[in-house]
């Protein structure tokens, strides 16, 4: 069954057309990589999926598990199973990571008509999910992302994903700002979440991340369109030839 079905998607940002007719179909369990030069529209696509304001869909449709995604609010999308791992996770002073995680998980459970977790069950669950990602109790007690290193922020994003168990995870430049060790930890965390019921979109500029999170399909996005689609070997080709042949300026 199709998890995500994007048809002829056109998106304007501040009156300027950024996405110019995207078609993309992702089946359940598949991992798709979207690669492309800076300014090709990769992040725009991730924000449109998550529902951020300021992104105007002028044409086309997005169906998620058969439902019209564009009709749903940001939090409704999250509760339905869309998760965006941010390129730059926000710092939220005054809200501890623990409070945030509990509020988010219970809000989603409530929206789905499930029972909310009490403090004890929640704590047990969080500790279980945090351990393999090296997210310490100390980090959980601190304000969300405040004073976290680049690696800690990305690990915290993966922890959120692991806890919220989305059906569609969109990873926006998850490799940015990570050294190789941090990249491995994050990739292991992501790989542990691969399952036949979960699809992923991995957005990246570089091939490096795809050595660790191996995609089923690779798309090249350039100037708001998908210009080429192939298997994982396409990423390796791009690493050699660059994006020049897709009409982009050298990044």
């Amino acid at each position: 069954m199709s998890m995500l079905e994007i048809k002829n998607l056109h998106v304007n940002v501040a009156g300027k057309e950024i996405l110019k007719g995207i078609d993309l179909s992702i089946a359940a369990g598949e991992v798709h990589a979207i690669m492309g030069p800076n300014g090709s529209g990769k992040s725009t696509l991730s924000y449109v999926l998550a529902g951020r304001g300021g992104y105007e869909v002028t044409e086309g449709s997005i169906r998620f598990k058969g439902k019209d995604l564009l009709e749903m609010s940001v939090d409704e999308r999250a509760a339905a199973g869309v998760f965006l791992a941010f390129q730059y996770p926000l710092e939220i002073p005054g809200v501890t990571t623990m409070t945030f995680l509990k509020t988010a998980l219970n809000a989603q459970r409530k929206a789905r008509g499930e029972e909310e977790l009490d403090a004890v069950r929640f704590l047990k669950l969080v500790r279980e999910k945090a351990k393999p990602l090296n997210v310490t109790d100390d980090m959980l007690k601190r304000a969300l992302n405040v004073g976290y290193s680049g690696g800690e922020k990305k690990r915290a994003e993966v922890l959120q994903m692991s806890l919220l168990e989305p059906s569609l995870a969109v990873l926006d430049e998850t490799d940015s700002g990570l050294d190789i060790d941090a990249l491995k930890t994050v990739a292991e965390g992501v790989n542990a979440l691969r399952s036949p019921e979960r699809s992923m979109i991995v957005i990246t500029h570089y091939q490096r991340l795809l050595d660790y999170i191996v995609p089923d399909v690779v798309h090249v996005l350039s100037q708001g369109r998908i210009v080429k689609t192939g298997g994982k070997e396409l990423a390796l080709e791009l690493e050699k030839s660059g994006y020049a042949e897709y009409g982009a300026d050298a990044a």
Partner: peptide
């Protein structure tokens, strides 16, 4: 947006 994107 960040908080809402987590379902809040």
């Amino acid at each position: 947006f960040y908080l809402q994107s987590r379902g809040i």
